[in-house]
Simulated assay, not measured.
Amino acid sequence: MPTVFRYKGIRFFFYSNEGNPREPVHIHAFSNSAEAKFWVLPEVRVADNAGFDRRTLVELMQVVEAHRDEIERTWNEYFS
């Protein structure tokens, strides 16, 4: 599970086995008590959430948007 970056103690990563066929580019966010999945393309949006409140999800979406290029680059390098 490659970690792409961390933000306020939340780890942003993707799973090494992303299904067959592989799902489109996305990122998971994990803290001690919550996990969410965000689609990155064509726009950042929440795919799944278990434990993050609405305000935090909005903040995390902004963080994912700010790191979109890094996420996409890391994804492509890893899965190429």
Rank of each mutant, 00 (worst) to 15 (best):
Tyr78Ser: 10
Gly51Phe: 01
Arg22Ser: 11
Leu60Asn: 06
Asp69Ala: 15
Asp53Arg: 07
Val25Leu: 09
Asn76Val: 03
Glu23His: 13
Arg6Pro: 00
Ile27Ala: 03
Asn76Phe: 04
Trp75Phe: 09
Tyr7Cys: 08
Ala47Gln: 12
Pro24Phe: 00
Arg55Lys: 12
Thr3Ala: 06
Pro2Lys: 10
Pro42Lys: 11
Pro21Lys: 04
Ser33Pro: 00
Tyr15Gly: 04
Leu41Phe: 07
Arg11Gln: 14
Phe14Cys: 13
Ala29Arg: 03
Val25Asp: 06
Asp53Gly: 06
Gly9Cys: 01
Pro42Leu: 09
Val4Gln: 02
Trp75Thr: 01
Glu18Phe: 07
Phe13Trp: 10
Thr74Lys: 13
Met61Glu: 15
Leu57Ser: 04
Ile27Phe: 05
Asn49Met: 07
Ala29Ser: 07
Arg68Tyr: 08
Ile10Gly: 01
Leu57Arg: 05
His67Phe: 06
Phe79His: 13
Phe38Ser: 07
Arg11Asp: 14
Glu35Trp: 05
Glu18Tyr: 10
Ala34Glu: 10
Pro24Arg: 08
Thr3Pro: 00
His28Asp: 06
Arg73Val: 02
His28Val: 03
Lys37Ala: 15
Asn32Gly: 14
Asn20Leu: 09
Met61Gln: 15
Arg55Thr: 06
Ala34Gln: 08
Leu57Ile: 02
Val40Pro: 04
Ile71Lys: 06
Ile27Trp: 03
Lys8Leu: 05
Gln62Ile: 02
Trp39Cys: 09
Ser31Tyr: 07
Glu18His: 12
Pro24Met: 02
Arg11Phe: 10
Thr56Met: 12
Val64Ile: 10
Asp69Ser: 13
Ala29Thr: 01
Phe5Ser: 02
Phe13Asp: 04
Asn76Tyr: 10
Glu35Val: 11
Phe14Glu: 08
Tyr78Leu: 05
Val64Trp: 08
Arg45Met: 12
Gly19Ile: 05
Ile27Cys: 01
Arg54Met: 00
Phe30Gln: 14
Arg54Thr: 03
Leu60Thr: 02
Asp48Arg: 12
Val4Gly: 00
Val4His: 01
Phe79Val: 03
Asn49Phe: 09
Phe30Gly: 10
Glu43Phe: 11
Val64Asp: 07
Arg73Asn: 09
Phe38Asn: 06
Phe79Gly: 02
Thr56Leu: 04
Glu18Asn: 15
Ile71Arg: 10
Asn49Trp: 05
Glu18Pro: 06
Arg11Leu: 14
Glu59Gly: 00
Val63Glu: 07
Tyr78Phe: 15
Arg55Cys: 00
Glu35Pro: 00
Arg68Pro: 06
Val44Gln: 02
Ser33Met: 05
Asp69Asn: 12
Glu77Ile: 09
Asn20Val: 09
Gly9Met: 01
Leu60Glu: 03
